[in-house]
Every structure is written in structure tokens, then in C-alpha cells.
């Protein structure tokens, strides 16, 4: 009986010490914010488009990190982003809900713009310049093509245009050989079924 008490007492003391050490460690090595959220956020394309159902990339990253959202909601990120998120979260990859559309670019038809600044307020990346009662215009290099400025415009003067393909950004396609295609298909199958 007495040996049982010894055992319980020594374990209790050990647990107490461990608890104190852990408590101190938690205070000492405390990290502000969830590191998982940061990591997930870094994988997302940062269009802030809201197509995932969350008001931006950071909120979606938070939702994924907490297990609230699935890994396959990021539309512009496409398969690559989905696979990276699934890999980071350690879950099975899932099929994408929607095919990513070609990269778009907002364009303000300046002669129709009334200078209401509503699109400027809507732009999540501050890519529209202008002032009240002045024409607004989109900085093409900063536009993420998120579509969020189109809805608020009261005179519908914003078009979404296809992003022009630059010759500098052209890249070689996969070689047109059977083995190249086979290898590619095999990889896609592999990606689809984890």
C-alpha cells in the first residue's frame, strides 16, 4: 500500500514539475498568431477575390487552419495551390470545385467614369487610383483580377479584360512527344488520388 502511495506521490511531483516547465515554456516561446495560418496564407494567390466564400485570403487561411473550410475552395490558385495546402495540412487532396478562369484585368472606361470612388473602396489591393469627381484608372500591374470593383460601379464602366500575354512571359510548352504526354498524365492521376 505504501509503495503505491510513493509511486503516486513521485508521479504527482513529476507531473507538477513538468506542468510548471511547460507553462513557463509556453509563456517564453509564445508566438503571436497561428503559424499555420501564416504558412497557408503564403501559399494563397492573394487575389483577395472572395471566391472561396471568405472575405479574403487571410480569412480563408484561418478557416482552413481551424479545419472549418476544405482545402479546395481557392479558385484562382488552381490545382497547384490545392495540392500545396493539402500537403501542408496533411489531408487528402480534393477535386477543385471550379476551373480557374484565365487571368483577368479590370479596365475602367474613363469617359464613362463619374468619379464616385466606390471601386477604389472596393479594391482589396489598392490597385485603382483616382479622387472624387476625377476619372479613376486601374494600375494594370497591381490588379489581381478579383472582380470586386465591377459590382459597386453605379454606371457599369468597368470591364474585365483578358490579361494580355506578354512575349517575355511566354514559356515553352511540354514537348510534343508521346512519352512527355504520358508522364504528364500519370502525374495528374497521381495528384488526383494522392
Amino acid at each position: 500500500m505504501i509503495s503505491l502511495l510513493y509511486a503516486l506521490a513521485s508521479l504527482g511531483v513529476f507531473a507538477l514539475v513538468a506542468g510548471i516547465v511547460l507553462a513557463i515554456a509556453q509563456k517564453l516561446f509564445h508566438i503571436e498568431g497561428d503559424p499555420m495560418v501564416e504558412k497557408l496564407d503564403a501559399l494563397l494567390p492573394q487575389t483577395q477575390c472572395g471566391q472561396c466564400g471568405y472575405p479574403g485570403c487571410k480569412p480563408y487561411a484561418t478557416a482552413v487552419a481551424s479545419g472549418e473550410a476544405d482545402v479546395n475552395h481557392c479558385v484562382p490558385g488552381g490545382e497547384r495551390t490545392m495540392l500545396q495546402i493539402a500537403d501542408l495540412m496533411g489531408v487528402e487532396p480534393k477535386d477543385l470545385e471550379a476551373e480557374p478562369a484565365a487571368p483577368m484585368l479590370a479596365f475602367v472606361r474613363e469617359d464613362e467614369c463619374i468619379g464616385c470612388t466606390l471601386c477604389i473602396k472596393a479594391c482589396p489591393v489598392d490597385a485603382i487610383v483616382g479622387a472624387p469627381k476625377q476619372y479613376h484608372t486601374v494600375i494594370a500591374d497591381h490588379c489581381t483580377g478579383c472582380n470586386l470593383c465591377v459590382e459597386p460601379c453605379p454606371v457599369d464602366c468597368i470591364d474585365m479584360l483578358m490579361k494580355p500575354e506578354l512575349i517575355e512571359h511566354w514559356s515553352w510548352p511540354l514537348p510534343d512527344t508521346k512519352r512527355a504526354q504520358l508522364g504528364h498524365e500519370r502525374r495528374e492521376q497521381h495528384a488526383g488520388h494522392g
Binding site: Q46, T47, Q48, C57, P124, V125, D126, H169
Partner: peptide, 19 residues
Amino acid sequence: LQRREDSFAEASRKRSETR
């Protein structure tokens, strides 16, 4: 292409955070 996309995403993230 990937590196270009990544750096664009990084720039967009900064802009969005500043905003």
C-alpha cells in the same frame, strides 16, 4: 512562371495588408 506568380502574390498581400 511560378516565381512570378509567387512574387505577385507577395506584393498583393503586402498591398492588401497595408490597406
